[in-house]
Design a protein around this nucleic acid. Structure first.
Ligand SMILES: [Mn+2]
Ligand SMILES: [Mn+2]
Ligand SMILES: [Mn+2]
Ligand SMILES: [Mn+2]
Lengths: 220, 220
DNA sequence: ATATATTTTTAGCCGTGTCTAAATATTTTA
DNA sequence: TAAAATATTTAGACACGGCTAAAAATATAT
């Protein structure tokens, strides 16, 4: 009763949309997965029959417990693989996501355990995303978007979006990695740039880029 | 123009049958791939259209240069991954094949290079099979089957079949690994057992098992 | 050489996951 | 609150890679 790669990808996407506290609509999935809305509808029907999601027509879907379990399993694979590729084989952080997209579906439980062991049971991936443990538990942090921080504050980068390699290389050049402390100097109005200091260097970055960084309070 | 996993598997199987100097028939592929003969015929048609094999009706298939290139590419992936899993993650040699069957299809060229580098450009996998280099070249050894060796001779294990985990564990218990020297004591007639000495220990193994071991001459 | 057995191909079907176009439901706007 | 815009579902098609059953070609045996 193994699930197809397609089903796994849908469940993962549903989880990711849910965790942004957004309603999981046909169109949001259509956009995220790059498939036509009609295709999403037919897949939703299948997921619903398999009791992986609940669905009220025209109302969007929600993961069931069983669907959530699968989603977290795949996300665990994805994030473990990302970190493993970086640590063990030196794959740059802007490339690990693409590799993990493929590997996450073919990782055996045994290999998952070996990788987890090798990495010392890590709790976050190269982009700062939490890695669920085998039971699906992960560390929740109280993070907010970089653009919501008050000028003058010191914060620590919690997580950056892993989907755009070019953006990641841009962040990398400035040292904007998870766990790095940054001081916000100013946030210009009218969608203006954010000026910040990273490791003694000052940078100005646009709102578009900053949106993809989330932060937590700096250690006391 | 990426090829499907199915196509890759067919090409790999065709290569493997060809390299046993056997005609690649519909039924041999059917058996190897565990699909109905009719399915093989329809896939052969597709491979033929894509110029990956040549086919004369009722006569079997042969890889074209382009088909051979793909087959060797996948076999390189498979064998590199097998060795990598053993070396880097300690996966036992009876389990690496199954993992590699899945990973071989999702390995990027970049990762292939990194793994190759990590392993120091290896030339054979954990079962003794040669690993093609990036150009498809590999070291050919003049090996023969263990059951063809004359009693009294010392030989070195070249290669063991990687398809049966149980068999591999059985071999492993006796230390029958590639590059190991064995001395053949006797080969009983009427499909009788082969008695041999491995690292000072004497064992008797059946013909069925011995068939899956190939050997080369011991170093002078 | 002919009958029989085996192998291969053809024909037709099915499940999966996608698509486009059209119908229908919901949401927004006026 | 009715019309317009948008979102979702339905209908019907298609490529892929399987399947079974039947037909045709090849190989084997008498
Ligand atoms: Mn797992
Ligand atoms: Mn990631
Ligand atoms: Mn193998
Ligand atoms: Mn390759």
């Amino acid at each position: 009763m193994a699930l197809s790669q397609s089903i796994e990808d849908y469940l993962k996407s549903i989880y990711e949309i849910e965790s942004k506290h957004e309603n999981v609509t046909t169109s949001s999935l259509s956009e995220k997965l790059n498939v036509a809305p009609a295709s999403v509808t037919s897949m939703i029907k299948k997921l619903s029959e398999k009791k992986l999601v609940t669905h009220k027509k025209y109302q969007g879907v929600k993961l069931t417990n069983s669907g959530l379990k699968v989603a977290l399993e795949i996300i665990r694979h994805h994030r473990l693989v990302e970190l493993y590729l970086k640590e063990a084989l030196g794959v740059p952080w802007d490339q690990v996501h693409e590799e993990a997209e493929k590997w996450e579906h073919v990782l055996s439980e045994d290999l998952e355990d070996r990788i987890d062991e090798y990495l010392g049971h890590p709790t976050s991936d190269p982009h700062g995303s939490p890695i669920p443990d085998r039971n699906g538990n992960m560390i929740e942090r109280d993070s907010r978007n970089l653009i919501e921080v008050s000028p003058g504050a010191k914060v620590i980068i919690a997580e950056v979006s892993d989907h755009n390699p070019e953006l990641l290389r841009y962040f990398g050049k400035m040292g904007l990695y998870p766990e790095t402390e940054v001081k916000i100097i100013s946030i210009e109005p009218f969608q203006g740039p954010i000026t910040l200091v990273v490791k003694g260097e000052e940078y100005s970055i646009g709102r578009e880029a900053a949106k993809y960084i989330s932060v937590v309070e700096a250690d006391a």
